[in-house]
């Protein structure tokens, strides 16, 4: 049973682990950077030291401008993916749900594909173009799914899933179409993006995503007890006083907004949103007040580590991080499927 004591112990322990993992991830990369320069680099990052930034060594630039923001972005994306996964699994009462199940991600991907097709550059109206188009695509998909799934003011779970699956298929077809008419050299860029990849974001972009993700995660956290009750089934939840329709709509909108943002900055990184919640649930149980933040932290660590692998295995070349998460997550998922059947399904 969840007590304040247990919550603080688990989350506190995970936070310590997160710090350790982030420091570890900062030490590995295509170039070897001394751990002490990690420290000096981080010192130099604080404002007021802007003048110093012009004097920075290349190794410090690598640390401050490339590796640090990328590791942080990996952590945030992983945390968001896992939190969205937990929420959707509870909302849909389906342990196989992941952040990409509802078609919002395909909308984002289509937005990015269009931006690449029409050769829109790295900025659009002074904003980073690919995330902007990705987010806009995700929002449109969200509205569309909402319209499709809603009937008489209600949002039945099965029509939500169905609308998501169908929209996924249709939008994926559009993306395929776009890649097929593209010049092969350029479609390679799009494919690389679709495979899921993290790039080093600029600090403004990182800050925007961080604030956005943390806000959505905080709101999700406040709905954790509702998620618990929702797993009892929709009717039972209502008989316990939950306004299920309103809660479902809020949770759907929140997860979709976060998914759109995730896909727009990192493409489709599979398995994190599905496998991490499973693993954490096995270890600490299903109470979402603990499961949600714990999954977010574990998901963040998992993706930060996976991205470190992706950055270093073939250095100086990189591999798409989605490949690493799938290779690590796939066998684990098989294990769950084959040996933990009794528990999970």
């Amino acid at each position: 049973m969840l007590t304040v004591h247990r919550w603080v112990a688990v989350i506190g322990g995970l936070l310590l682990a997160c710090v350790a993992v982030l420091v570890l991830c900062l030490q590995f990369g295509a170039t070897s950077v001394d751990i002490r320069s990690v420290a000096t680099a981080i010192m130099h990052m604080f404002p007021g030291d802007l003048a110093a930034s012009t004097r920075l060594e290349t190794s410090e630039i690598i640390m401050v401008q490339i590796r640090f923001p990328r590791v942080l972005m990996g952590f945030l994306v992983g945390a968001s993916l896992a939190a969205v996964g937990v929420t959707l699994q509870a909302l849909l009462r389906n342990p196989l749900a992941d952040p990409y199940v509802l078609g919002v991600s395909s909308g984002s991907a289509l937005g990015v594909s269009l931006a690449i097709l029409f050769g829109i550059g790295s900025t659009f109206l002074l904003l980073p173009a690919l995330p902007l188009f990705g987010f806009a695509g995700g929002l449109l998909a969200l509205l569309l799914i909402y319209r499709l799934a809603q009937s008489k003011g209600r949002l039945p779970i099965h029509s939500l899933l169905l609308a998501g699956v169908i929209l996924n298929a249709v939008l994926t077809a559009f993306i395929m179409f776009i890649t097929s008419i593209m010049e092969p050299n350029r479609s390679a860029g799009l494919m690389a993006w679709l495979m899921g990849s993290l790039t080093a974001p600029g600090y403004p972009a990182l800050a925007v995503f961080a604030v956005y993700a943390v806000l959505v995660l905080a709101v999700l956290m406040r709905k954790a007890q509702l998620l618990n009750v929702l797993t009892l089934g929709e009717e039972t939840a209502r008989s316990l006083g939950v306004e299920t329709e309103g809660v479902k709509k809020q949770l759907f909108a929140l997860t979709a907004l976060l998914t759109g943002a995730i896909v727009s900055v990192s493409g489709m990184i599979g398995f994190v949103g599905m496998v991490v919640p499973h693993a954490v649930r096995l270890l600490i149980g299903s109470d979402h007040r603990l499961l949600l933040p714990a999954s977010a932290l574990v998901g963040g660590m998992f993706l930060a580590l996976a991205d470190t692998m992706a950055r270093t295995v073939l250095a100086p070349a990189e591999i798409p991080v989605g490949i690493v998460t799938a290779l690590a997550g796939g066998p684990f998922f098989l294990y769950l499927l084959l040996w933990r059947k009794d528990r999970m399904f």
Binding site: S122, R186, T199, A317
Partner: peptide, 27 residues
Amino acid sequence: PRLSLEAVLQEDPEVLVFPVGKAEGIS
């Protein structure tokens, strides 16, 4: 290859070349 940005800074290129064209290239 998908090249690591870190490696790029480390190797410190003296020239960046961007292919451009009608149907492809970097904006």
